[in-house]
C-alpha cells in the first residue's frame, strides 16, 4: 500500500518535472524538440492518408470492364480538350515572351508547381490548417502559396522535412493583399474562421467606397501579385456584401470561400523559380 502511494507521487513528480522542463527550457531546445516531434509524427499523419489512397486504388479493381471503358472514353475526351488548351496556352506564352522581348521587359516571375496530397485536416473553430505530404526536401518553404483548381487554399505556415502545415485561407491568421477582378486597386483580405455548420468565410476591408457587391451580384476577389507570394488573378472567393465604414472612406464586407476547401484531396504549392536552389 505504502509503495503504491510513493509510486503515484513519483509519477506525479516526474510529470510535473517534465512540464517544468518544458516551460523553463531555453527556446532553442524547445524549438529543436518541437521540430523533432513533428518529424517523428509525420509518418503518423501520412500513413492514414496513404492507406486511404491504397484502399481507393484496390476499390477501383472492383469496377466492371464496361465502366472502365466508359471512364477511359470520358478521360480521352477530357484529355483532348486539355491538349487544345495546352496548345492555346503555349501560343499565349510565346506571345508574352515576344512582347517581353520587344519591350525589353524582365521575364515575368513564374513558379514551379509542386502537387501534394493532403494528409490531415484541422478545420474547426480553433484551427484552420491542413497537413500536406510534401516538405522541405521538395523545396517547400514557409510563406509559399498553396492553390487548387478552384483558387487559393492558403499559405505554408510550417515546412517540415516531409510534411508541411498549410494555414488555410479561412484562418483568422491568414491575411493577404487582393483586388477585385477587373480592377487594380488593392484591398486587404483576412480569413474569418469557420462557424459550425456554416461554410468558411473571409473578410475584405479597405475597399474603395464606389465598389458595390451583393448576394445577387457578387464580386470576384482575386489575388494580387504586389507582394510576390501569389501570382496575379487567382480566385479567393466572392464578395457578397459591402458596407461603408463610419469614416465614410472604405467599405468592408464578407467573402464567400469555395466549398471544396473542406473536401480537397490534392493541392499545388507554388515554388518561385527564383527560389529554387537557394
Amino acid at each position: 500500500m505504502a509503495w503504491r502511494d510513493v509510486s503515484s507521487v513519483r509519477n506525479l513528480a516526474i510529470f510535473l518535472c517534465a512540464i517544468a522542463a518544458c516551460v523553463l527550457a531555453p527556446s532553442v531546445v524547445r524549438h529543436f524538440v518541437d521540430g523533432l516531434f513533428e518529424e517523428f509524427r509525420a509518418p503518423i499523419d501520412a500513413i492514414p492518408s496513404q492507406l486511404n489512397d491504397l484502399g481507393k486504388y484496390w476499390s477501383l479493381h472492383s469496377n466492371s470492364k464496361r465502366s472502365l471503358i466508359e471512364a477511359g472514353r470520358d478521360l480521352a475526351r477530357i484529355n483532348s480538350a486539355y491538349e487544345l488548351k495546352m496548345l492555346e496556352n503555349k501560343n499565349l506564352q510565346d506571345r508574352v515572351a515576344r512582347y517581353e522581348d520587344i519591350l525589353n521587359l524582365p521575364p515575368e516571375d513564374s513558379y514551379k508547381f509542386e502537387v501534394a496530397r493532403i494528409a490531415r485536416r484541422d478545420i474547426n473553430a480553433w484551427w484552420q490548417q491542413m497537413v500536406i505530404r510534401k516538405g522541405r526536401v521538395h523545396g517547400i518553404k514557409e510563406g509559399y502559396a498553396v492553390i487548387y483548381s478552384g483558387g487559393v487554399v492558403g499559405r505554408i505556415a510550417k515546412a517540415n522535412l516531409y510534411t508541411s502545415v498549410v494555414e488555410l485561407v479561412s484562418s483568422r491568421n491568414f491575411r493577404m493583399a487582393a483586388h477585385f477582378d477587373g480592377e487594380d486597386r488593392p484591398v486587404i483580405y483576412q480569413g474569418a474562421g469557420a462557424v459550425s455548420l456554416q461554410d468558411a468565410k473571409g473578410e475584405v476591408r479597405d475597399v474603395p467606397g464606389d465598389v458595390r457587391a451583393s448576394v445577387s451580384e457578387p464580386r470576384l476577389l482575386v489575388t494580387s501579385a504586389l507582394t510576390g507570394t501569389f501570382p496575379e488573378g487567382i480566385r479567393i472567393g466572392e464578395v457578397v456584401d459591402l458596407s461603408l465604414g463610419a469614416d465614410g472612406l472604405f467599405k468592408s464586407g464578407t467573402v464567400r470561400l469555395g466549398r471544396a476547401l473542406s473536401t480537397l484531396r490534392e493541392v499545388t504549392v507554388l515554388i518561385p523559380i527564383s527560389e529554387i536552389g537557394k
Binding site: 491575411r175 493577404m176 493583399a177 488593392p186 494580387s224 507582394t227
Partner: peptide, 10 residues
Amino acid sequence: HAILAEKIPV
C-alpha cells in the same frame, strides 16, 4: 501596404 498587410503576422 500590400506587403506589410500580407507578411506581418496578424
